[in-house]
């Protein structure tokens, strides 16, 4: 399961012991710069930084990292082609005649497509950096420090726990159904999936009720208490990140007019 792989790597990587607040600040500031940039150069630089950090510094195995990065990018390539066809304007680069239809690709659309593609690459690299180096459990503390409603954070924390329990249960039920030829054709597949969904719902609900009883035994009254706190990172690291951010913002202003195809 993908969820298991990412979670396991988040707990075992070379950047695991860096202050999580620092990692969140770094990844989110880079993400914002990526989204705000107007040319392809800055997002590509950010993507490069993030990929190098994730693969060579955090030592995330390439055979796990590449599929995660490439799957959304396949969608990105389709977007670029579509945008080239949909949006007209600028020079006509290419026109193909299929029967009576003429499909033309214009420079405006291609430029827009490439910009969106580079932003997606940069953005996905930033999110993957955050996802692969910071465990969710530490993110919950940060969400709580950000003064998000405690109801929201509590439900998220418990949900995180139950996701893995339910996934395990799902895999077990699926295997049991598979050994009984539960997925041999379309009709049985639907029947099996329906049973699987219903049983999972019932088991999940029972688990929730049991969890409430267990929590009540330990004095739960509608609010979860956490004792651990995450300390703030040293000022010098924050300053370093801010300087990198400012450099990238300046670069994105300087290269604002850059177009791949003029």
């Amino acid at each position: 399961m993908n969820a298991n792989i990412i979670d396991r790597i988040a707990h075992n990587n070379r950047l695991r012991h860096i202050n999580p607040k620092l990692k969140v600040f770094f990844a989110l500031s880079m993400l914002l710069i990526t989204v705000f940039s107007k040319s392809v150069i800055v997002p590509l630089i950010i993507a490069l930084i993030m990929i190098v950090l994730t693969v060579f510094v955090a030592k995330v195995p390439l055979r796990i990292y590449l599929p995660l990065l490439l799957a959304p990018l396949g969608f990105g390539v389709i977007t670029v082609i579509l945008m080239g066809i949909i949006y007209s304007g600028g020079k006509e680069l290419l026109s193909i005649k299929i029967f009576n239809f003429t499909i033309s690709i214009y420079s405006y659309g291609v430029n827009l497509g490439l910009l969106v593609f580079s932003r997606m690459l940069g953005g996905i690299a930033c999110t993957l950096f955050l996802a692969l180096t910071t465990p969710m459990t530490e993110l919950f503390y940060i969400l709580r420090d950000l003064k998000l409603p405690s109801t929201f954070v509590d439900i998220a924390m418990m949900m995180y726990r139950y996701i893995f329990l339910l996934l395990e249960e799902m895999i077990r039920i699926t295997n049991a159904q598979n050994t009984r030829l539960g997925y041999k054709d379309l009709k049985t597949t639907y029947k099996s999936l329906g049973t699987l969904g219903a049983i999972l719902f019932i088991r999940a609900w029972d688990r929730g009720e049991k969890a409430f009883i267990t929590m009540s035994c330990r004095g739960y009254n509608g609010d979860l208490k956490l004792i651990k706190k995450i300390e703030s990172p040293a000022i010098k690291y924050i300053l370093l990140i801010v300087i990198v951010d400012i450099l990238l913002i300046a670069l994105s202003y300087l290269t604002g007019d850059f177009k791949v195809i003029t």
């Binding site: 439900i155 949900m159 726990r161 996701i163 339910l166 609900w205 009720e209 969890a211 409430f212 979860l224």
Partner: peptide
């Protein structure tokens, strides 16, 4: 007060 754990499992169910 049981709403919290129940909604949490419901959300986990949605994810799965």
């Amino acid at each position: 007060p049981e709403v919290k754990p129940l909604l949490a499992v419901a959300g986990a169910y949605m994810f799965v």
